[in-house]
């Protein structure tokens, strides 16, 4: 395994130590050691079922793990769903975008974005709306604010989901295959919005099958195979000169077309 030394003095936002997770007898995460520094964009690649989604879902406590520990912005997540502060505290600092968007279908686009700031942060309605409209503008969808999610295309819905997560002003954004449920012609608009976010300096952990995007945006690419981090490094190193034969074989399969 290639060891990536983080720059001295760089502020760590995520630190996973010896994280192990089992689904019954299946060992889905094996001794995961992973640190992410502030402002870094980490892309996680791997075959379906390799554990890459599970890995990022552990970071905001949507999945429990059985051994090891995870530090997120100085809060600590412990095995079996325990944590130093409430999970809620951790989740307010960590945004997530899901494969299936998971917008709230009974709320307008704007209300989707303002719900958490109003209910969790106690933001006034006026401020929350102003902020929501600014974020919707940012993801290029301001004209849809009064519609319901069901009236939007998949690409538009995913951009709303991005705005919704950003409304909480997270210090870290998790992306769980954000373009996998999209029609091909809509993938670009979502990747564009993510690219902007990366440029703005957001710390991002992205699980994706979009290798071109990974190469372009990632500071670091991590390849996971059967619950283990097999290889990681700068995108040009991992993509052009993979060291591990499993990485070579995986990339051989996905980059061919």
């Amino acid at each position: 395994m290639t060891d990536i030394k983080t720059e001295p003095g760089a502020e760590l936002i995520v630190r996973m130590e010896k994280v192990n997770k089992f689904f019954g007898s299946l060992h889905v995460l094996q001794d995961i050691e992973l640190s992410v520094t502030h402002g870094e964009v980490v892309v996680i690649i791997g075959a379906s079922g390799s554990g890459k989604s599970t890995l990022i879902r552990c970071i905001n406590g949507l999945e429990e793990f059985q051994h090891g520990h995870i530090e997120v912005d100085s809060n600590e997540l412990l095995p079996n769903g325990k944590s130093s502060k409430s999970l809620q505290t951790i989740r307010t600092e960590v945004g997530m975008v899901f494969q299936q968007f998971n917008l709230f279908p009974h709320l307008s686009v704007r209300d989707n974005v303002t719900l958490a700031p109003i209910k969790v942060r106690g933001t006034s309605e006026a401020d929350a709306i102003e902020n929501a409209d600014r974020l919707l503008e940012q993801v290029n969808i301001a004209d849809q604010a009064d519609k319901l999610p069901g009236q939007l295309s998949g690409g538009q819905q995913q951009r709303v989901a991005l705005a919704r997560a950003l409304a909480m002003e997270p210090r870290l954004m998790l992306f769980d295959e954000p373009t996998s449920a999209l029609d091909p012609e809509m993938i670009g608009e979502v990747l564009d919005a993510m690219r902007e976010l990366a440029k703005a300096g957001m710390t991002m952990m992205i699980v994706t099958h979009e290798m071109g995007f990974a190469r372009e945006v990632a500071d670091r690419v991590i390849y996971i195979h059967q619950g283990q981090i097999v290889e990681q490094g700068k995108p040009e190193d991992v993509f052009d000169n993979p060291q591990n034969e499993r990485t070579q074989s995986f990339l051989g399969r996905v980059l061919k077309h």
């Binding site: 905001n60 809620q88 989740r91 899901f98 709230f104 958490a116 909480m168």
Partner: peptide, 20 residues
């Protein structure tokens, strides 16, 4: 996913139930 999305935004379990 509705529950996961609401929890991931920092809503408590009660808020997630009530509003989502």
């Amino acid at each position: 996913g509705q529950r996961e999305a609401s929890l991931s935004l920092g809503l408590s379990r009660t808020q997630s139930f009530r509003y989502v």
